[in-house]
Structures are given as structure tokens and as C-alpha cells.
């Protein structure tokens, strides 16, 4: 499902930095239906790896293929590729001037879903993450863990076959973190390919994932635990 072939990513030099090689010659494959965890210290390149898979960043060398399609190939095809992916961002990227319900509906709006059917799906997604009773509220009234769950609801409402979650358990208490992991596992169990990044593996051990360890932009070790 995901193929990285000698992928390197160098961020261009900005005013404050002199360019940084975030990933160096990464070759790896993630099969359909896998539950993979990308680990590594802060700055190891976890977010960069997920962004390359989602086509948010382009590799400076090598190729990234998702479902056999080269993401660097066509700018026009990119939005339609993204619709097959559920994205959970490290910084949430919720719309804070829209209700919980509207936030989750956004991916369906983008694909032009019929409104009635969309409302049904939004409620189903909110139900799955336990936020159905909060649909009219604004995201600011939600706790950190609830906001993270809202992100998951938005990521899965259009039933993607691939779920990418960037540090979904960061800054959460153990219990909340466990909630999130359980939800992600439930999607894995129904056949969704799940790729999660984290800087601590503890809360994810239960899921028995495949672990992809990154260290300073290189593959450190790769082993199923």
C-alpha cells in the first residue's frame, strides 16, 4: 500500500536555519491492513515521514508511492488521493469557529456528499469516538483528549482505507491515550491500514504493532514487537 524507495527529504534553508536533512534514504513498505508505529525522538523525522506519505511534503530524492501512485506525479490528482486517506495532525488543525458537527462534516462537503447521508455519517463517526452528545458545541469547549477524538472522527468520516495519525497520544493522560489507541485499533480490526507516530511506545504496546524506529532521519531498526 505504501512504498518508500530511497526517500530523502531536505528542508530548504530559511532565514533561521541553513537547511536540514530530515530523512535520509529511507526504503520501506507498509502493506494493506498493517498497524505500523513510527517511533523516534522529537526531531527524528516522524512527522516528515507521515507528511511525505500524505503528499503534504514532496521528497527531495527517491519516490513515495501510495496505492501504486507516485505522489510527485500529478498535482491535480493529489486532492483525490488525499480523500482516500484519513489524516490526524499533530497540531489538530480543527476549525475553531465551527461546531463539532461541522468540523466532522468538512471532508464530506469536499467530496460533495448528499446532505442527509452526510449527516448520518457524521453522527456515526461522532458516536464512534463518543462525542455524539457534543455535536453542537465549539471545539474550544472540548478537553485535549476530546479534541483528539474529534480529529479522529473527522479523519474517518469518509471511510478512508489508510489512516495516518501524527502523535495522537501526545500530551494526553494515560487513560485518554488508551482511549485513542483503542479507537485506532478498532479501525485496524475492520481492515483499515493505520500508521501512527509516537515518541513513547508504552500506550501502543497493547496493539502489537509493527514498529518502525527512526533516528536522526534514518531507519534505526524495524521489528514487530
Amino acid at each position: 500500500m505504501i512504498l518508500l524507495d530511497k526517500v530523502g527529504k531536505r528542508y530548504p534553508a530559511g532565514p533561521g536555519n541553513d537547511g536540514h536533512e530530515a530523512l535520509k534514504s529511507i526504503t520501506l513498505a507498509i502493506d494493506s491492513g498493517e498497524f505500523a508505529v513510527v517511533t523516534g525522538r522529537s526531531g527524528a523525522g516522524k512527522s516528515t515521514l507521515l507528511k511525505l506519505v500524505a503528499g503534504i511534503e514532496l521528497p527531495t530524492s527517491g519516490t513515495v508511492r501510495v496505492n501504486g501512485q507516485d505522489l510527485a506525479g500529478s498535482r491535480r490528482a493529489l486532492p483525490f488521493m488525499r480523500r482516500k486517506i484519513g489524516l490526524i495532525f499533530q497540531d489538530h488543525k480543527l476549525l475553531y469557529d465551527r461546531s463539532v458537527f461541522d468540523n466532522v462534516q468538512l471532508p464530506l462537503d469536499i467530496t460533495g456528499f448528499p446532505p442527509k447521508e452526510a449527516a448520518r455519517r457524521v453522527r456515526a463517526a461522532l458516536d464512534k469516538v463518543g462525542l455524539l452528545s457534543r455535536e453542537r458545541e465549539l471545539p474550544v469547549t472540548l478537553s485535549g483528549g476530546e479534541q483528539q477524538r474529534l480529529c479522529i472522527a473527522r479523519a474517518i468520516v469518509h471511510r478512508p482505507s489508510l489512516l495516518l495519525a501524527d502523535e495522537p497520544t501526545a500530551n494526553l493522560d494515560m487513560d485518554y491515550a488508551q482511549d485513542i489507541v483503542d479507537i485506532l485499533r478498532s479501525f485496524h480490526q475492520v481492515g483499515v491500514t493505520v500508521v501512527v507516530s509516537t515518541h513513547d511506545l508504552v500506550s501502543l504496546r497493547m496493539a502489537r504493532p509493527r514498529v518502525i524506529a527512526l533516528s536522526r532521519g534514518m531507519l534505526a531498526s524495524e521489528h514487530p514487537e
Binding site: M81, R83, L95, T111, R154
Partner: peptide, 15 residues
């Protein structure tokens, strides 16, 4: 912000 989020989750320029 809304535009950025929409682009990230698969909105076309047209949308």
C-alpha cells in the same frame, strides 16, 4: 486556516 485545512484533507482548488 480553513483553506489550509480543506486543502490538507483533499479539497480541489475549485472547491
Amino acid at each position: 486556516e480553513e483553506i489550509e485545512v480543506c486543502r490538507l484533507i483533499g479539497a480541489t482548488h475549485g472547491f
